[in-house]
Lab assay of single mutants.
Amino acid sequence: NKASVVANQLIPINTALTLIMMKAEVVTPMGIPAEEIPKLVGMQVNRAVPLGTTLMPDKVKNYE
């Protein structure tokens, strides 16, 4: 099972992601793969992401 990116804290809307905000966890359904964490640093979320929520591609601005 592959790990996904999960919010390590509440991430407010329009916040630029940092390493400390994210952790890798095996979750269902799968979100953004954990190996993409370095790519996500500096990207902004387009909505608030509660603690423990899986980061889905549609929650990150300009994620492809």
Rank of each mutant, 00 (worst) to 15 (best):
M21Y: 05
P50F: 07
V26N: 10
N46L: 15
I13D: 08
N8Y: 05
N62G: 15
N62I: 01
N1Y: 13
L19P: 09
A16F: 15
I11Y: 03
V6Q: 00
T54D: 05
A3K: 11
P29R: 04
I20H: 12
K61T: 11
A34K: 00
T18C: 09
A7F: 00
T15K: 05
K23N: 08
M43H: 09
E64K: 13
K61F: 10
A24G: 10
E25S: 11
V27E: 04
V49W: 04
P57W: 14
I32C: 04
L19Q: 08
I13C: 15
N8P: 01
V27W: 04
V41L: 09
M30R: 11
V27M: 06
L17I: 12
T15M: 08
T53Q: 14
L40W: 01
T28N: 12
K59Y: 15
Q44G: 06
V26K: 09
N46D: 07
V27L: 04
P50N: 07
V26C: 13
A34M: 06
L51F: 14
P33M: 06
V41H: 02
E36M: 13
V60Q: 03
Q44M: 12
K59R: 15
N14E: 08
T18R: 09
N8D: 07
T53G: 13
I37P: 01
M30D: 07
T28W: 13
P33V: 03
G52V: 04
A48D: 15
M56C: 11
N1S: 13
N1F: 13
L55C: 06
Y63Q: 02
P38F: 10
L17S: 00
T28P: 03
L10W: 13
G52L: 06
T18M: 08
A34E: 05
P33A: 10
T53Y: 10
L10S: 13
S4D: 02
T54M: 05
T53H: 13
N46I: 14
L10K: 07
E35P: 07
I13V: 13
Q9I: 11
V26L: 12
M21C: 08
K2E: 10
L19A: 10
K2D: 09
A16C: 14
T15N: 04
Q44F: 14
